[in-house]
Design a protein around this nucleic acid. Structure first.
Lengths: 246, 246
DNA sequence: AACCTCAATTGGTCGAACCATTAGATCAAG
DNA sequence: CTTGATCTAATGGTTCGACCAATTGAGGTT
């Protein structure tokens, strides 16, 4: 039943370290850019070994909360928390079999439609300029036959779109999904046609007209095409980029 | 310009460890439940110190990829990757000031609407039963004046809803957002009225009719009310639960 | 059968030493 | 005066070896 016991949680020392630092951050005492004491000093202050402090710091580093720099004037600095941690998580889950490709693409489609809808409502001139510039860049790379480089520019487009919504949560989510898609896109290889570019010009036109339905439609159609490509890629072998990329 | 140099990435030994293990997972050689060799053995195999291996394992543990158990028959086991890592990330970002409460609630509203829409389409009888049971449980707790316990049941409702979509990505995202909301909900305290419960009965009715618009409407209205509560709470002081909960 | 005890295994912690990297100071050469 | 080499101190990165703590299971005791 409900009113039960709590599972006993024993904390490791390093977890205690992360908790205390997180608490300082949550309390507003530590702000991005601030520097933490040296590992050796913190070990003294906490009354634990340096190794324990290190493990705690490394955990925070992986979480994107601190950045560890070497050398004099180095140390642990509070960062603004990057987005890569979440992407990594999804990637792991995919490879673990916890989520399937269809779920991933399905969710992406929904999320992307949402982003387009909101962005169409809110995008500023500056946002449009950035998006336009991105497509131009992609076109330039296509003409230069730099197909692989083009992939990353195309991915950046989606991030820019999310930024145009002005909502940091959406940006984070989109960044995470794009990180996973990055694997598939590179496995599929750079496209040698301009379908994507044309689809985006059309999308931008609709957005400029503030025609959300048309914009969502353009994006959706294009994504569905892409998904067929990815599906074929996966059939031929699950991409395994874990060793190289980062 | 584009054709630039790559920033030199130097890897720490522990990162090398995580990479190799992740690669094994990505290649399908390691499946959830599998056990990794003992730290001491891995240290020998990798040719590094045990400390380096430990740091790598701890990183994977925090990412939810492995679970570390003590004692004989203990060791590092591949897990299915929990959802808490992402939630933690959002929480950090919030406290770091990277995302605001309005962005959070706004994104939640969008996501929740999406979930309701999809769930209305796809929910099975079993899903409805689970949702119904959840609301019953909440009502029981309300009558027993166990307001704090009720909070968690209410939160679980949203997770159940996401599960009804059958999409693991949505479940993960919702779990993450709920983890953040958990802080606010507990800071606001358990409600002593049955508005939430009534709203949910109404929502479930609409879903059973497969009336997505009505369902979304019910959910949205209720959430907006809640948001006003949270906003007031935050005005009185940012909740800082980092020290206690986990 | 129930319980205790002990040993083996494995993660958790410690401490001291040393290596590697970096920023800045100092100095030398041009 | 600029450029570059060299040294120095600070700090993270790594190693080793030891010991502690938790868990399991075997074996013995009651």
């Amino acid at each position: 039943m409900e009113g039960g016991f709590q599972p006993i949680r024993k904390r490791r020392l390093s977890d205690e370290v992360t908790l205390q630092i997180r608490a300082r951050v949550a309390a507003g005492e530590l702000r991005p850019g601030d520097k933490l004491p040296a590992e050796r000093d913190m070990a003294d202050m906490f009354g634990v070994s340096r190794g324990a402090v290190r493990e705690g710091l490394r955990a925070l580093e992986h979480a994107g909360l601190v950045e560890l720099l070497q050398g004099t004037k180095g140390g642990a600095f509070i960062s603004d928390g990057g987005n890569s941690a979440i992407g990594e998580h999804f990637r792991d889950k995919y490879y673990l079999g916890g989520i399937s490709l269809v779920e991933l693409t399905e969710a992406r489609l929904w999320l992307e439609a949402l982003v387009v809808r909101v962005a169409t409502e809110r995008a500023s001139e500056a946002d449009f300029d950035a998006l336009e510039a991105n497509v131009d860049e992609a076109e330039r790379l296509l003409k230069a036959k730099r197909y692989v480089d083009k992939i990353d520019v195309h991915i950046a487009f989606h991030i820019l779109l999310a930024e145009a919504t002005g909502n940091a949560v959406l940006m984070t989510l989109m960044s995470a999904l794009m990180e996973v898609m990055h694997d598939f896109a590179h496995a599929a290889g750079g496209e040698r046609h301009d379908l994507t570019i044309r689809a985006r010009r059309k999308l931008l036109q609709a957005m400029r007209r503030r025609d959300a339905d048309a914009a969502v439609d353009a994006m959706t159609k294009h994504l569905i095409e892409l998904q067929h490509r990815y599906r074929d890629v996966v059939r031929k072998g699950i991409p395994n980029d874990a060793t190289s990329a980062r």
